[in-house]
């Protein structure tokens, strides 16, 4: 462990590689986590199939790439397809569990996650796949740092998508309705908002966001039918750390998690890379608990 830290001290240029890799992948985490925050905040549904939506988006881009269409087209295609898919899932499953207790929705989405992973496995096989975007790779600092152009493109697209969602939530009628429902669903219904439609739209929007994140991940990373769970966990860590309705928080937590993971893998070894994710979740929860405890005492 200490040798690895010494490497970073002796050759600081490798910090740049770790930071960049972390930021690029963190941006896609933040995107998927924002979708989760939306569904969690508006509908109080904790979607355990979040990561599987991401992987589905990845397979869309990969599939297009295999059929002579540039995988970047996978981003818009995944958004449209996953929006429709999200709607179907809402109507068939989520609508039935939304007003039930917490465990019902957890179990339902967990079951959905298993089914989706197996369907992807049946359709595309269990191998690791990657969509080849075919952009050049830049070498910096005498080849010590490499930077694939597709990662820069993915980062820009992530930023644009996040911006589009924010504008949508602020400016459009539907965005306002979603925010109103999140604040108080009953009051929103009294005011004439069709909350069922708002829920359907929110869930579909989440699926679309996940699809876009997944399409980007398939180009900058690798996908596999059973990788969904690790993306779900990351989304939960980010949302738990940042809270709902806190977009800057989600972005910071997403980028931070990406960087922490890369540093964790470097310093502690690849076997501890995911320990960092779960470890952070634990720290955040303990800290939150501690904070709330203080708050409660102040109220008393």
């Amino acid at each position: 462990m200490f040798d690895n830290i010494m490497v970073l001290v002796a050759a600081p240029v490798f910090n740049i590689q770790l930071l960049l890799d972390g930021l690029f992948i963190g941006a896609t985490y933040a995107l998927a986590a924002y979708g989760l925050a939306l569904v969690w905040g508006v509908m109080n549904v904790k979607n355990l199939a979040q990561g599987d939506f991401v992987i589905m988006g990845g397979y869309i881009a990969w599939w297009l790439g295999n059929h002579g269409i540039h995988p970047l087209w996978g981003v818009p295609v995944a958004i449209v397809f996953m929006f429709g898919f999200g709607w179907v899932v809402y109507v068939t499953i989520i609508r039935r569990v939304i007003d039930k207790e917490l465990f019902t929705s957890l179990l339902a989405t967990f079951g959905l996650a298993i089914v989706l992973a197996q369907v992807l496995n049946l359709l595309f096989g269990p191998e690791v796949q990657t969509a080849n975007a075919g952009f050049p790779i830049l070498s910096l600092f005498d080849n010590a740092v490499t930077l694939a152009q597709i990662k820069i493109i993915a980062l820009i697209l992530c930023a644009l998508l996040a911006l589009a969602v924010v504008l949508f939530m602020k400016k459009s009628r539907m965005g306002q309705a979603i925010r109103a429902t999140a604040q108080d669903a009953r009051a929103a219904r009294v005011m004439g908002i069709d909350t069922d439609k708002v829920y359907a739209f929110t869930f579909s929007l989440n699926a679309a966001i996940c699809g876009a994140a997944g399409a980007l991940i398939s180009m900058i990373w690798v996908i596999q039918p059973f990788y969904g769970i690790s993306h779900s966990i990351r989304s939960f860590v980010i949302v738990t750390a940042a809270g709902f309705g806190n977009l800057p928080g989600v972005i910071m937590a997403g980028l931070g998690l990406g960087v922490m993971e890369n540093y964790g893998g470097f310093v502690l070894g690849a076997e501890f890379q995911q320990v960092v994710v779960v470890g952070l979740l634990l720290i955040v929860l303990v800290w939150r608990q501690f904070q709330q405890h203080k708050l409660r005492r102040a109220v008393i």
Partner: peptide, 8 residues
């Protein structure tokens, strides 16, 4: 289920 070995 590690899908990234870039740190390694």
């Amino acid at each position: 289920d590690l899908n990234d070995i870039s740190a390694t």
